[in-house]
Amino acid sequence: MLKVENLTKVYPNGTVALRDVSFEVEDGEFLAVIGLSGSGKSTLMRCINRLIEPTSGRIIWDGTDLTALSPAEMRKMRRQIGMVFQQFNLVKRSSVMTNVLAGRLGYVSPYQSLFNYFSSADHARALKNLERLGLQDKAYVRADSLSGGQQQRVGIARALMQEPKLILADEPVASLDPVLSHSILKYLEQMNKEDGITVLCSLHFLDLVHRYSTRAIGLKEGKIVFQGLPQEIDDTQFKTIFGQEAERVTIL
């Protein structure tokens, strides 16, 4: 179970990205995080695996306070927390295989990995994950020769290599053609349902939230303004989260 308690992040330039954010995520949930760009969604995601250091507050993951861990302990903990990014963040010039294997780095011997050595078990696991995402025939091409949707699937395969209990997906479909959104989110849903991986996913479109998430939280200017079931987001809720100017858009 993930428990976020009174999380606050103030950047060195004075911007307050998160104000006193508290919420809980049960194991196996698909939690959607919604809000405008700049509302603190990305900061929240990155505070959970401490890619960004929170200013105050606690993050309890399976009873461990992540904010109290040393950098080395945090690295070990990150193995359980996969991450998927808006810009995919693949190493473009490396092969798909190397990108996927990189998800194993937290497990393998640091010295062997420096020479690009991974065990045959890891190779097999990588191929299995690629197959699961329909990319088995792309294993040895360069990552930048793939389309955006394919690159994001490589990103998910990389996260799966960590054998995570939690996946943080930061706007996983925002850089993709809308028609590809469902394909990517279906994969995430599959991981959530079949493997029981908890998913935290920030999304723009309400349709997608309704379709995929089991619960949602709404962020506005770093504060939680909504917590509840996706179906509970009515027009008033919508305007509180996205502002009076906002209009609903439908995607497919």
Binding site: K76, F85, G103
Partner: peptide, 24 residues
């Protein structure tokens, strides 16, 4: 971006340099 992604997998600094920096 890749630095962030590799760090998120639990890699240490040397591994981040090897897998996210050097290929670039």
């Amino acid at each position: 971006g890749p630095i962030e992604a590799i760090t998120a997998t639990g890699a240490n600094l040397l591994q981040v340099i090897r897998y996210a920096v050097i290929p670039q």
